[in-house]
Amino acid sequence: MARHARPLSPFLHYRWLYSNTTSILHRITGVLLSLGFFLLVYWLAAAAAGPERYAAATRFLGSWLAQVVLLGTALAFCYHLLNGIRHLFFDAGHGFERPAARKSGWAVGIGSIVLGLVVWFVVRASLGGGA
């Protein structure tokens, strides 16, 4: 179809900038969350299937492999959430000046790590981590 092998996503070839980093991270976390959606459905289906199935699901979700996946999902969610809000401000025409965008980018990065750890830890405690 293409007569010339033009790059579809030229931003992949630009030099590093905080802006393309926040942007590709938004995309990567979006894909991770899209996979995490199936975990949510699995958890709901287990709760709908009765106490035994639910207990089995909780045991599975308490395994360390699942906990690593859930930690990743929590970090991805918090990054995508905070950066998504930042994105919506940009779309509405606010905070797109370079110093402001750079600052909010860092705030989102650091904030999402802190918030992600808190969410993971609190939800783990709340769900009993396999209890």
């Binding site: 009765g50 106490p51 909780t58 609190v122 939800v123 709340s126 769900l127 009993g128 209890a131």
Partner: peptide, 15 residues
């Protein structure tokens, strides 16, 4: 997330 956090415990009954 607020709902998950406010569960009494993560057991079948409370969820």
């Amino acid at each position: 997330f607020a709902g998950l956090v406010r569960l009494e415990d993560g057991g079948y009954e409370s969820v």
